[in-house]
Each structure stands twice: as structure tokens, then as C-alpha cells.
Amino acid sequence: MKPTVKSHLVFTLLLFFSTFMLLEMGLFIAHQLLNVQLKWNLFQYCLSGLNEQTVGHDITKIMFNVLIMYTLARIFFRIAKQIYMSCKWNRIFHAKENTKLTKILNSKYRNWNTRFLVVQDDSFIALTIGMLRPKIIVSSGLLGMFSEQETKSILLHEWHHYRNYDPLKIFITTVISDGMGYIPIIRASVRYYKTWSELLADRFVIKKMDSVYDLANVLLRLSNLNKVRNYATGVYFANSTINYRIQQVLEPEKSIHVPFLQTKPVLLSLFVIFVLSSIVMGGCA
């Protein structure tokens, strides 16, 4: 299966699973608070296996409610944090805008139909922010740090994120991971998706430039660069996947193996299922 297909499949499954779980949680809460009649519900089904007169039934019900409240609290906290951080850094970026360089960059790449914003900063800054109306942020330090072709490779990488609406997708997967991180395989899936979103952006650069040379130079220099700033508001060029990305440009003919079903997350997930099954079976006995 092609990496692009794998990436889309993982994102789709994450979205489907999280939507299903949130819907089931909402119906379970509505049943308790509003006495909404349910034909079938995952949590209610698990409770139905327990005798209502047993302590196990009451404990399990409390556990489900705590789990649901924890999940919803984590999701709302992440969304609120993202809104706050986005507003904060948008204000900072616009306050530090280098108008002259911004106009030059937008004019130079006007055929990309992309919004660029150059901020006055000596550090390396390259990221795509904005969920529905993304834009590419780069620093003046970046433009002076690399050659024209190297800078183009960085901008192409961010352009791929821009065209693919990756800030929105990364935000969705981060919310899922934060809210349902107690399911280890969810965290593993999100990590897998984020890694491949970066690798696919680099493949887009290589295809457009018909060479790995400039991108390889950038990645190798970044691996030893201290003046790199990361932000929690978008998809940025220098992140934790850089080792896979360096491997990809150094050995372009070799397929990259990104672990998906790691042993520890799978075993933990199976353990959680086993514990829940034991509770239900114990109540039935």
C-alpha cells in the first residue's frame, strides 16, 4: 500500500473511531440526564452484562462517567488552548512582520496562490498556520541563513502542508490523541500519521525540485542548529520526525519503515480490553 493511501486511511479511521466514541458517550450521558431511550449503546451494552443489584454495576457506571468527563474535559481544554495560542501567535507574528520581505516573497511566488508572512527574527522559523485559511510563516533569519534553492525547498515543504490543509488535520488528530490518549493505539496512530505527513511533504519537495540535494543540506544543517523555534499553533518544518526525513533524503531509493503497531501500545490496549471484559464477566457470574 502506498504511503499516501496509508496516511489517508489512518486519518479516516481515527476520525471515524473518535466520532463514533464521542457519539456513544453523548448518548450515554443523555440517557442518564434526559432519560433518552437507546436502542443500542456501547456503554449501556457493557453495563447490561452486569446485574444492576451488584456493586460491580455501580462501580463500572461510575468509571464510565469519569472516563467520559475526562475525555470531554481534555478535548475542550485542547480546543480552548489552540484558540488561545493561535490568537496569541497571530498577534505576535503580525506585530513582528517585515513588510518589505513579505511583499517580495508574495510577489516572487504569486503563482502559488499562497499567503506568506515574513517575521523579523534571527531564529529559524518555518511553519504553516491557520485551519481554514492557512498561511506560511517564515523568519527573516531563515531567508538569510540558506541559499535561494534551499529556501525554496523549505517553502515547497510548507506549501504542501498549505495545499493539504495539514494544520487542520494535525489539530484534529492532536485533539483525538489528547482526549483518548488512554487508548495507547490511538497515540501510536496519531504519531504515525504526523510522521508521514512530514515525509510526504518532503517527497513533494523532491518531486518538484527533481533533486534531494538542497533539502538534504537544509535537514542536515537543521539537525545541528540551535536557533530553531517551534510553536504549538501549526505544522512547522523542523520537528521530531527529522531523523526519518534525513534517512529519506540520504537513501531516496530505500523505503522508509515507520513503525505503526508497536508492541507496547498493542499490549497495553489488549490489557485494557481484558480488564474491562473481566469486570463485565465478573458481574455476570
Rank of each mutant, 00 (worst) to 15 (best):
K2F: 09
T4P: 00
K6I: 02
L13W: 08
F17L: 14
G26H: 04
L27V: 07
I29D: 03
H31Y: 05
L34G: 08
N35T: 09
K39M: 10
K39Q: 10
F43K: 05
S48F: 08
S48C: 11
T54P: 02
T54A: 12
G56S: 13
G56F: 14
H57F: 15
D58P: 01
F64H: 01
F64I: 15
L67Q: 02
F76E: 10
K81M: 13
M85H: 05
M85S: 11
N90H: 14
E97C: 07
E97N: 09
L101K: 06
L101Q: 04
K103I: 06
I104N: 09
L105I: 15
T114F: 08
V118D: 03
V119P: 03
Q120T: 15
D122F: 03
A126Q: 02
A126Y: 02
G130Q: 03
G130N: 05
K135F: 02
V138K: 05
E148F: 08
S153Q: 04
W159L: 05
I172Q: 10
V175M: 11
S177A: 14
M180S: 00
M180C: 06
G181K: 01
I183W: 06
R187E: 07
V190R: 04
Y193P: 00
Y193T: 04
K194W: 02
K194V: 02
T195A: 11
W196V: 01
S197D: 08
E198F: 07
D202W: 07
M209G: 02
M209L: 13
S211L: 04
K227R: 12
R229S: 04
T241D: 13
T241S: 15
I242Y: 08
R245H: 07
P252V: 14
L261D: 06
K264E: 13
S269K: 03
F271E: 06
M281L: 14
